[in-house]
């Protein structure tokens, strides 16, 4: 395994009973890269992320995250990554501050250090007005920022974001991507992100297109568009998946 990679997997596989959700995939993500993980519903994106975050044990294959093995070192992995899950992991009956304290605690932050970190992300994400409100009561666009703030309290090397912008309105989505971009370019954080807003794939350095457990293609947005002669990523996506399903008529 190459330790220059933030993520490096080989033959990674996950079976649930007789069903194979992730089917022998190989790919690697460079440090500091914004990596888009695209795919149809049920393709296996969330399942892959859960294996990479050390939440789910692979059935087969191997992989490393930040140089640690996903088979044997999941506890180490959890210390150096941030994870925002598809179904928000925030507690709606806790205030924003309490949520951050809780998350900070799980990363082993406490006392003054925790306080300082909370202050820093509060400023960075502009969530000061919401600190003492119940998380369940604040608009989704803000909840998603709180999610990001909580996931970055411990300065993770790699950030896994599973549909962070689903259901979020365009202006909040744009602000979110500007933040992500600054995290990657400014602090060198590796970003591993899934989205169904295909125009967001344009902001990624490279994007993988996944379907029924396998990766159909992986490249920079520019080469994907030029290889398939499409003007945008949504057309590339539709083409690649339809072609794979043999539904392409031309």
């Amino acid at each position: 395994m190459n330790h220059d990679y933030a993520v490096d997997v080989e033959d990674l596989t996950k079976r649930f009973g007789r069903f194979t959700a992730v089917d022998h995939i190989d790919f690697s993500v460079r440090r500091g890269e914004i990596f888009g993980f695209l795919g149809a519903n049920g393709a296996g994106k969330t399942t892959t992320i859960r294996m990479l975050c050390g939440i789910l044990l692979p059935s087969d294959g191997k992989g490393s995250v930040a140089g640690y093995s996903i088979m044997t070192q999941s506890e180490r992995i959890k210390q150096v990554i941030g994870y925002m899950s598809q179904r928000f992991s925030l507690y709606s009956d806790l205030t924003v501050r309490e949520n951050m304290e809780f998350f900070g605690g799980t990363y082993g932050l406490k006392n003054q250090k925790l306080k300082n970190r909370i202050e820093r992300v509060t400023d960075l994400y502009g969530i000061g007005d919401f600190l003492d409100q119940l998380t369940g009561d604040i608009p989704l666009g803000w909840k998603q920022r709180v999610g990001l703030a909580s996931a970055t309290l411990h300065d993770p090397q790699i950030l896994f974001l599973d549909e962070p912008t689903s259901g979020v309105d365009p202006s909040a989505r744009r602000q979110f991507w500007q933040t992500i971009y600054q995290l990657a370019r400014g602090s060198g954080t590796t970003i591993f992100v899934t989205t169904h807003y295909l125009e967001e794939a344009e902001y990624c350095d490279r994007a993988a297109i996944m379907h029924k457990g396998t990766i159909l293609d992986l490249d920079t947005p520019a080469s994907l568009k030029s290889r398939y002669s499409k003007s945008n990523m949504e057309d590339v996506f539709v083409h690649v998946i339809r072609e794979h399903e043999g539904e392409l008529t031309v």
Binding site: N41, E163, L198, V238, I241, R242
Partner: peptide
Amino acid sequence: DEPTTGVDPIAR
């Protein structure tokens, strides 16, 4: 209410 949120582009 938001039936297409989280649904992939083809399915949408």
